[in-house]
């Protein structure tokens, strides 16, 4: 086909696009994926029975705000990378992890040495990162669904950012089940789960996001 014919044809198929369209596409994928992941957590692991008491502790809100802050920063990077030429904001992306690492270091230094093993390992360090990765998968699928309707041009970075965001959202959802309360535990094992989801996203990015 000749290029001027193509232009005629495209102009004949123009439908108006509202200014918030990209945001709505992203919200649909991210919201849908997160809802599936939350239902998965509740059915598979169950919400912690002592949630009502836990919300009055600082440890609960440390976990809640760390993972939510990481997810919010990650979603910011994803929404910038979803557009042609968009770049991630790594400084903002890594800020929550840096804050929780500082908190963990303070907790480690101020605790007597006999508590160190428990602070680090808790009771669930063997399952925690893998459950976070598992709960991140529906969120990742929803995010990829959205990104395939938008136009990322840095596929590897976009895959990594989508993986980190999904990992953080999965960790936030996992925290409704998990009753660990040490900052050291969260800084190590939660962050490991989120990082694994990021690596998975980077590996899949180029294959899943090409257009």
């Amino acid at each position: 086909m000749r290029t001027d014919e193509l232009i005629d044809r495209l102009a004949g198929h123009l439908a108006p696009v509202s200014r918030g369209a990209a945001g709505r596409i992203l919200a649909a994928g991210v919201g849908g994926g997160s809802a599936v992941s939350f239902v998965l957590m509740a059915a598979w692991l169950g919400i912690r029975p002592d949630l009502a008491q836990a919300v009055s502790t600082g440890a609960y809100w440390m976990k809640f705000l760390y993972t939510l802050g990481f997810a919010a920063a990650g979603l910011g990077s994803v929404s910038r990378l979803a557009r042609p030429g968009g770049r991630p904001n790594w400084a903002v992306e890594l800020l929550p992890a840096a804050l929780v690492a500082a908190l963990a270091a303070a907790q480690w230094i101020s605790a007597p040495p006999f508590q160190h093993h428990h602070l680090l390992m808790g009771a669930s360090h063997l399952v925690c990162p893998w459950r976070i990765v598992a709960l991140s998968l529906p969120v990742f699928a929803g995010t990829v669904w959205s990104l395939r309707r938008l136009a990322p041009t840095r596929l590897l970075l976009t895959g990594a950012a989508a993986g980190l965001f999904a990992g953080a959202a999965g960790a936030w959802i996992y925290a409704f089940h998990c009753d660990e309360s040490s900052a050291v535990f969260v800084a190590v094992w939660y962050t490991l789960g989120i990082a694994l989801a990021g690596v998975l996203g980077a590996l899949l990015g180029r294959r899943l996001l090409r257009w």
Partner: peptide, 23 residues
């Protein structure tokens, strides 16, 4: 041209158009 058409929702009106086009 087809990509511009099918991906036009990804243009952010607060950013320069030529940067979007070149990307």
């Amino acid at each position: 041209l087809i990509a511009i058409h099918s991906r036009r929702a990804s243009y952010d009106a607060t950013l320069p158009f030529t940067a979007w086009l070149h990307a």
